[in-house]
Nucleic acid binder design. Structure first.
Lengths: 113, 113
DNA sequence: TTTGTATACATAAGATATCTATGTATATTC
DNA sequence: GAATATACATAGATATCTTATGTATACAAA
């Protein structure tokens, strides 16, 4: 990996929920696929670095939010993640929280809301 | 001060911009007033702790974003802050950034956007 | 009269999330 | 054979915020 990405400091706190939401919407995904998909979905705005992504996935796994199955494709390993029952419950709560956060933040930074 | 506030982890990265925006909208404010005003504007959602607020104000001051004048009211000191020219420029950029962030985040967590 | 609440500032120490940097390895394109 | 893309991993640094604590005045309630 040669390309370095730059992330916004605003990211902080939202990464876990972003990952969980991607998994909710796509059933199962592997790490690299998540970064590509998030980048695409946000028109290049959100670029998740590997140093952020993999530790985050491991943490979510430790918390019991993710289920894993490994697959070898083109002689390269892929670690597929999907939401566990616990993860499915968590993603709903976290999205509600993020939407509430966005709403409150808009009340400050957006005129006429 | 006896009441302890709880902040969301989502806050991270937005505090400086929130402070600058409040100052932009209100001309000049003192620290305590900012916390009250932010809490009121967000219907109790954003509760800025003193341990977050004052260090943030000091940092923004060091960066040259703020102008200060002290005032004694009811025998209590107030430190009034207002935006410097540099702060005025910064707040515009940071709000644009936050709005772009909100937009991208919505693309992920909100269906049909 | 002292207890609690509100106002008003400040800072040290700790937690934690993310970034930077680095490492391994395979496949494909130039 | 050099660069790019795919695919994982982790140690160490950094930044931001929280928790905890401190000082001080004013006022209401008990």
């Amino acid at each position: 990996m040669y390309i370095r990405y730059m992330n916004s400091k605003l990211f902080r706190g939202t990464l876990d929920t972003i990952i969980l939401t991607m998994l909710r919407d796509n059933g199962k995904m592997y790490g690299y696929e998540i970064t590509k998909s998030v980048k695409e979905k946000t028109n290049g705005e959100f670029k998740i670095t590997e140093g952020s992504l993999y530790p985050a996935l491991h943490k979510l796994e430790r918390k019991g939010y993710l289920e894993i199955h490994l697959l070898k494709v083109d002689n390269r390993m892929r670690k597929y993640y999907s939401l566990s029952k616990k993860g499915n419950k968590a993603v709903k709560e976290e999205i509600t929280e993020i939407q509430s956060f966005i709403h409150s933040l808009s009340l400050i930074v957006n005129p006429n809301t």
